Amino acid sequence: MLKKAGYVQTRRRMIRDCDNQENNIIEVIIHGTKFGIRLSELYQAMSGIRSGRIEPIRNNAECRLCGTAGKVFASSSGKAVNITLNNGDRFTVSQRSLRHVLAQCGRYAPLYSVPRTVPVDMQTVFSGDTDYGNVSVIC
């Protein structure tokens, strides 16, 4: 089951990256942490051309994009945009609601977390024990 983890908001603005170049972004708030996606990369990801980057927004003296926190790409059905962070967390937002935000018809689009798949212990698979209730995984 998907749980709401944040939102994508219309607050488009110019923001500088680490190379001091200005970029037009859309903000993504995940569990209270601000990220930015460059609009050119988001449009390419939505159309399935290539994946884009999601970058953390650092707020020292001024807001800046620095580093890459993960990637943004279209789902295989083309009905959603998926975000995968470097730590393994995955999120999704519907393309329909995202297009409303980009067209400024809506203020924000809800972002949902995709549950992690629990890796099965290989020893359990080879031994034939199918009781997965006692399998513990450290993430």
Rank of each mutant, 00 (worst) to 15 (best):
S77V: 10
N20Q: 09
V93I: 14
L111I: 08
T10L: 04
P119F: 07
S47Q: 14
G52A: 12
D131Q: 04
R11C: 01
V125E: 06
S76K: 08
A45S: 14
S51G: 13
D121N: 12
T33L: 07
A45K: 06
V93C: 12
R16Y: 13
E41C: 00
D89E: 14
A74F: 00
L42I: 11
R90W: 01
P110H: 08
P119Y: 04
D19C: 05
S113C: 04
S47M: 14
S127R: 09
C63T: 03
N60Q: 15
L65W: 07
C105E: 15
R64A: 04
Q104C: 00
M14D: 12
M14N: 12
F91W: 03
Q44P: 00
V8G: 01
T33F: 05
Y112P: 01
T124M: 15
I49S: 13
Q21A: 15
T92A: 11
H31M: 10
L2D: 07
T92K: 04
G67A: 10
K79V: 07
K4S: 06
Q44F: 05
S127N: 07
L65D: 09
P115H: 09
L85N: 11
E41T: 00
N82A: 06
G52P: 02
V114I: 15
V137G: 02
K79G: 12
L42T: 11
V120D: 03
N134T: 01
A45H: 09
D19F: 11
E62R: 14
R99D: 14
Y132R: 02
I37K: 02
I54A: 09
V81E: 03
S40H: 13
H100R: 14
K3M: 03
N87V: 03
D129S: 08
S94A: 12
A45I: 13
R116P: 03
N134G: 01
L98T: 14
V135F: 00
N87I: 08
I26S: 01
K3H: 04
F91L: 09
C63L: 10
G106E: 13
R116G: 02
V8K: 01
V137D: 03
I54N: 05
G128H: 10
G32Q: 11
T92D: 01
R58N: 11
R16E: 14
M14S: 13
I54K: 03
C66V: 12
T33Q: 13
V114S: 05
G70M: 07
M46N: 02
V72F: 08
R99S: 15
G70C: 07
R99Q: 15
R50Y: 09
Q21H: 13
L2M: 12
S94T: 15
C18A: 14
Q44W: 05
A74C: 13
N20W: 07
R53V: 11
T84R: 10
G6Y: 02
F73H: 13
L39A: 07
T117R: 11
T84D: 05
M46P: 01
A109N: 05
V135P: 00
P119S: 12
M122L: 13
L98M: 13
G88D: 01
L98A: 11
I57F: 06
A109E: 10
V81T: 15
F35N: 13
M14T: 08
M122T: 15
R38C: 02
I15V: 15
R11W: 00
